[in-house]
Amino acid sequence: MFRRLRTPGEPTTLRPDDVPPGMRIAGAYAWRLLAIAGVVAVVIFLVMQLSLLVIPVFVGVLLAALLGPFVSWMRRRRVPNGLAAAIGMLTLIGAVTALVWLVVSEVRSGLDDLQERSAERFDELLSWAATTFGLSQTEIQSSIDEFFGQFDLTDDWFVNGALSLGSTATEILTGAVLALFALLFFLLDGRRIWLFVVGLFPRTAREAVDGAASAGWRTVTEFAKVQIFVAFVDAVGIGLWALALQLPLVLPIAVAVFLGSFVPIVGAVVTGSLAVIIALIYAGPLPALLMLVGVLVVQQIEGNVLQPLVMGSAIKVHPLAVVLAVAAGGFLAGIPGTLFAVPIVAFFNVFVRYIAMGTWRTDPAALAAGPPGSGPLSSGPLTPRASPPPPADKRPR
């Protein structure tokens, strides 16, 4: 009934009952959250250090999610595995090459007219500046020379710029080759790769991991489809607006917007600027301003309506989470972070919820789906099939 009082100098021993329950629960959550945050920080650090390797692999994963249904359809038509993967890759490369060739050929066909009109617009700009500000041609030319003189355009500058451009081009080319190489093996041998990954987990957790990854892979596939839809909407919207303004090169503008929409932020800015510049050169300041308004309206609809709502409903992530994921990805890893943030968040959202709800225990279809979904990484159930019973005369007695 009575607690013994501690004598002076006696060491204090803290018993679990002496800590309030709320503090114990908060402490238990706190150290677990710190452990999770530490693991996430280490993973992000390693990804940033190995970005030249990780980014092409992630691109290969997204392309595999995009081509997966097509390759699986060919396999169901009894097309050999290697031939189906080759056809899928050649289809992708051919489609991108055809779109790029279409843009380049259209621009080259009107290049002479574009140069002539650009020179005319530049002369008109100089005349406007001379009339508005009362400047002579000599003063304007000296101002232009003084402006460019601030950049110290010496031979060393051009050499350094060429070296930097060559290094960047080499990195991009290497990344593209590595992405295609990874895509080939994801399409060709994804089953064995996934079995190796699942084999790293404890045997009792493999069914849960396999089912959760299957659900996550289906979500990534939906993300790839929605991304194509969003890019198509951007291209059609800006292309129709350019057509309404009676601008030339409408088809190259639309194709450039479609391809640029797959590169977050930078792609939209570059392709939108291209449309505005063409409007300024061929039609004048007012149509260029109207073109700029149209580009901004389409991009705002895409960024604030299509991306959060359509993509959020397709990948089962709240629109606010989509916006925050893109912002956080851009803050942590720049442009690649904005590209991969949404599929990564969508995958882990479905992955964690699937395991937490224990769906793999009551979903036989998920157990038989194999590794990630119906895409290129699946070719049968992960769990081993039961062996048939031995004949009666060979059964152990």
Rank of each mutant, 00 (worst) to 15 (best):
A98T: 09
E116M: 14
R121W: 03
G216R: 02
A275D: 01
V298Y: 01
A130S: 13
V250A: 03
L83M: 10
A268D: 05
D393R: 12
A288W: 08
I277R: 05
P319M: 08
L286G: 01
R15D: 10
A35V: 14
V57I: 15
L33D: 08
P8S: 09
R24A: 11
V42A: 13
D156G: 09
K316Q: 12
R32Q: 12
K225A: 14
A176N: 09
V233H: 00
L243Q: 10
S214V: 03
S374M: 10
T219F: 00
A275T: 01
G373S: 15
G216Y: 07
L62A: 10
F58V: 03
A65M: 14
A119L: 11
V104F: 02
I355K: 08
R117W: 08
A176V: 15
P11D: 09
I193G: 09
A212H: 01
Q141P: 01
R3K: 05
P56Y: 06
A242I: 00
Y282L: 02
A242T: 08
G68S: 06
T170D: 07
G284R: 08
I335S: 12
K225D: 07
T170V: 07
L195W: 06
Y282N: 08
M1S: 06
I315D: 02
L163C: 03
F348N: 03
V104G: 00
L243P: 01
E120F: 02
A162M: 08
S72G: 07
G239W: 02
I87C: 12
A179M: 13
A95F: 14
D152C: 00
G239R: 10
M89N: 10
L50R: 12
D112R: 10
P372T: 04
P20A: 08
A279K: 11
P343S: 07
A212T: 01
G94F: 05
G82T: 03
S136N: 05
Q246T: 03
L332C: 06
L245F: 02
I335V: 15
P285I: 14
D123I: 10
D189H: 11
R191F: 12
Q246H: 06
D189M: 04
V270I: 15
V230I: 15
A86F: 11
F196G: 13
P16G: 02
V352F: 12
V305Q: 04
V19S: 05
E302M: 04
A215K: 01
H318W: 00
G110M: 13
G329N: 07
A215G: 03
R15Q: 12
A256G: 04
G161L: 02
G284T: 03
I335P: 06
I55K: 00
V39H: 12
V236H: 05
L377A: 14
G267V: 05
F181D: 04
A35C: 13
E222K: 14
G68Y: 03
G94I: 01
T359S: 11
F186W: 11
M89K: 10
A242R: 06
R353P: 00
F232M: 04
V317H: 06
W241H: 10
G199W: 13
I315F: 04
S127W: 06
G373H: 08
I315A: 03
H318R: 09
L339M: 14
D113M: 14
L243K: 08
Q299G: 13
E116C: 13
V103W: 01
V71L: 05
W157T: 10
G260W: 09
E207T: 15
L90S: 12
V276L: 06
